[in-house]
Design a protein around this nucleic acid. Structure first.
Length: 703
RNA sequence: AGCGGGGUGGGGUAGCCAGGUAAUCCCGGCGGGCUCAUAACCCGCAGAUCCGUGGUUCAAAUCCACGCCCCGCUACCA
């Protein structure tokens, strides 16, 4: 008996490919386990609490619950479409979840693991609210740089304790913040140090999670503040506070299990009596919550402990760090599902691209290659050529006289899948059936049934039966990864793979074949180009500073955009890059939107600014905002892509003199190289071009 | 800054933790075969100083040290 959980999606934004990086492998794992005869419960749900949801709802003019409703429904829909089938998909703002959370908090209180403490918190008199550290800005007492409430992120990098920062200001309204004392509650994490050290030795799962957690525990632990000043959330007993969302979110694993067990079994067997193996699938970014805080909470309240934490690597898009704000993202509904592509393609990509622990790069080009050259050319083609051959030449009736060496090949694949599951390496499992498919293609090719059918019908039937056995095994073994397609194809082979067990792959019986249909539709290059364009447009818009547009599509709201952890990490690295790399980095301008730091004259001199003359201009097809310009910069003519098509017509630009940054790092926008950047005033996102006061020669320096 | 994970033929990726005939698979390039199949399938060839330097060893992509570069994480921010 196993309980499998997935990290809860935060109900504050749409589902994207990053989510699936965790959920698809978990679903694949669950499906394999079931085929191996294991009893499994698979739960997940929406994480509904926390400051960002409250603030975001406010901005949208909604109540938090209304915002959560939207995304909860969205996640359910998307998961179901992509065949990630949870036994229960709950939500943490449900009553049953609040009850379970409060029960656990009470147990922790009774057991003496929670204590109150007065702490000083930044408070904004203007907004009339306590400010999370994120929303406090001030001056670092050590180095004098601008710093965030908890960390001097731009200067010396030191961690700052509450109250340390000088001249605190509210980042939301800009007003001076004050410090106020308030009673909050802390969890005695320190007391769990020895327990955790021992626990982590026994904990299973991926090394990336375990190594990280072990190292964290060895360092100094601090007690953990578990209450917040919010209305929205699980009420802390007897106080006007809610529990911190990272306390109640993992408790969802328990409360959702309760719901999943209703009418089937007693959930207490799992969470109180250790009768099931508990496995958490998470993203690499929330390891410490699951390996440290969570087990300590469970231990402190006498619940069962997890047996394994399986952490997936992060997702990159087109080789770049995943980032919604910069356009490096694939939205599941708007991009993938809208494209009409077989959802199994994406599942295969996610599982097969690389080791579960490593970062996965998503690129449409690779996607097309993998689908067409692997899924279709290898697996799909084999299934179809064999089944079609059997139907056409034997009327579908083929006796079970097979070459036993094929059974060995099938056994090898099964063993490999077992090994893969034990080691959380789902790529190895999918490689196993792809190798079997190659074996099948080879077998078919060498046996030459198309010749045999003319010379030796019996020999031919034997070869076909052998290949059909391999095909049947393939359908079964690949079903967990490709459920939609294989469910359909199994019917042509005369069985229902959804009800099959792994052993059926070795079960030899005569075949009754129906006329098959092609299992996978080929992905056309035009389709890939179209999807790439969508993405490149998004990236180009982000790069040219067109923020409004993607804030709509990306559901990001001014001021809260940093709440995206991915996003934040991005901006952080960008800040660092900005520090080191200077102004050459085009990313700089996005980050430097407010209070840009001073630069020296030497730094300014690094900019090669000139007046250029537009000698040609045309729209870039399929893009709304981009123009391709040819600009005479004095010594040469440069091709420059500019995001001004919505405001300037190409024909109006020809002959115009514009300021241009010549030594801008070249970039490709929608596949068109841009070498340089024309400068314009930014009037609420509308570019307004700047022209020289007198006529000057192209190439004239600007200083 | 600290910690973690990486740097393997043109691109991507396996192997390394349990060191041993110079290395997997997919794409791409070249040549051949086949025709049942979604121009799919099969075979062969070219191409890697396995980031650098030093060390351990009879033997290192694989272990150790130092260096360079990339990426991620860092708790009152989900």
């Amino acid at each position: 008996m196993k309980l499998i959980t997935c990290g809860l999606p935060y109900a504050n934004g749409k589902a994207h490919i990053g989510h699936l990086r965790t959920y698809v492998p978990a679903d694949v794992y669950v499906r394999y386990l079931r085929m191996f005869g294991e009893k499994v419960i698979f739960v997940c749900g929406s994480d509904c609490h926390g400051t960002p949801i409250v603030i975001n709802a406010e901005k949208e003019g909604l109540r938090p619950k209304e915002l959560v409703d939207i995304y909860h429904e969205h996640f359910q829909k998307v998961f179901s479409k992509i065949d990630v089938n949870f036994d229960y998909f709950g939500r943490t703002d449900a009553e049953y979840h609040h009850e379970r959370t409060q029960e656990i908090v009470k147990r922790l209180l009774e057991n003496g693991y929670i204590y109150p403490k007065e702490i000083e918190l930044a408070y904004c008199p203007n907004c009339d609210r306590f400010l999370p550290d994120r929303y406090v800005e001030g001056v670092c007492p050590y180095c004098g740089e601008i710093a965030r409430g908890d960390e001097c992120d731009q200067g010396c990098g030191r961690h700052l304790e509450p109250g340390e920062i000088l001249e605190p200001r509210c980042k939301i309204c800009g007003a001076k913040a004050v410090y106020r004392k308030q009673k909050h509650y802390f969890f005695r994490l320190i007391e769990f140090k020895d327990f955790l050290l021992e626990f982590l030795e026994k904990l299973g799962g991926t090394e990336n999670a375990l190594n990280y957690a072990k190292q964290w525990v060895t360092m100094e632990l601090k007690d953990w503040c578990i209450t917040r000043n919010l209305e929205w959330g699980v009420k802390f007993p007897g106080e006007d506070l809610v529990v911190y969302v990272w306390v109640d979110a993992p408790i969802g694993y328990i409360s959702f299990t309760e719901k999943a067990c209703e009418g089937r079994m007693d959930w207490r067997d799992i969470w109180l009596r250790n009768k099931a193996e508990i496995v958490h699938f998470i993203g690499l970014d929330i390891v410490y919550h699951h390996c440290i805080f969570w087990p300590a909470m469970l231990k402190g309240s006498d619940y069962s402990l997890p047996n394994a934490v399986v952490a997936s690597g992060m997702v990159k898009v087109e080789g770049k760090t995943f980032s919604k704000s910069r356009g490096y993202v694939v939205w599941l509904e708007d991009d993938y599902l809208a494209s009409g592509l077989n959802t199994d393609f994406l599942r295969y990509y996610l599982v097969n691209y690389t080791s579960h622990q490593k970062d996965l790069n998503f690129s449409w080009e690779v996607f097309g290659d993998k689908v067409n050259n692997e899924l279709i050319a290898n697996l799909g083609n084999f299934l179809y050529r064999v089944t079609y051959f059997a139907w056409k030449n034997f009327g579908g009736k083929v006796e079970a006289k097979i070459d036993d060496t094929a059974l060995d090949a099938i056994r090898t694949a099964i063993d490999k899948i077992k090994y893969a599951l034990e080691n959380w390496e789902f790529k190895i499992a999918s490689d196993a059936f792809m190798e079997l498919s190659s074996y099948g293609n080879n077998y078919f090719q060498n046996a030459k049934p198309w010749d045999l059918i003319k010379s030796d019908r019996d020999e031919c039937e034997k070869a076909v039966a052998t290949c059909l056995q391999i095909a049947k095994a393939l359908v079964i073994l690949s079903y967990p990864v490709l459920p939609k397609t294989m469910k359909e194809f199994s019917e042509f082979l005369g069985f229902d793979v959804a009800k099959a067990r792994i052993e059926d792959a070795l079960n030899v019986e005569s075949f009754s074949i129906q006329k098959p249909k092609i299992p996978f539709e080929k992905v056309l290059p035009e389709k890939i180009a179209e999807l790439e364009d969508t993405m490149h447009t998004r990236i180009a818009m982000a790069e040219s500073g067109e923020r409004k547009e993607f804030e709509e599509t990306g559901k990001e709201v001014e001021g809260v955009k940093e709440t995206e952890r991915v996003n934040e990490a991005m901006e952080k690295t960008e800040r660092m890059k900005g520090k080191v790399g200077g102004i050459g980095e085009k990313e700089g301008e996005i980050v430097m939107d407010e209070n840009p730091p001073e630069i020296s004259f030497d730094e300014f001199k690094r900019l090669d600014l000139r007046i250029g003359k537009v000698i040609n201009a045309e729209k870039i097809e399929k893009s709304k905002k981009l123009l391709r310009l040819e600009i005479d910069v004095g010594d040469e003519v440069r091709q420059v892509v500019a995001g001004i098509a919505e405001y300037y017509k190409p024909e109006d630009l020809v002959g115009k003199l514009v300021p241009i940054l010549v030594n801008m790092k070249p970039a490709k926008l929608m596949g068109v190289e841009s070498r340089g950047m024309i400068l314009a005033a930014d009037v609420d996102g509308e570019p307004v071009l700047l022209y020289p006061d007198k006529k000057v020669e192209p190439g004239t320096k600007i200083r």
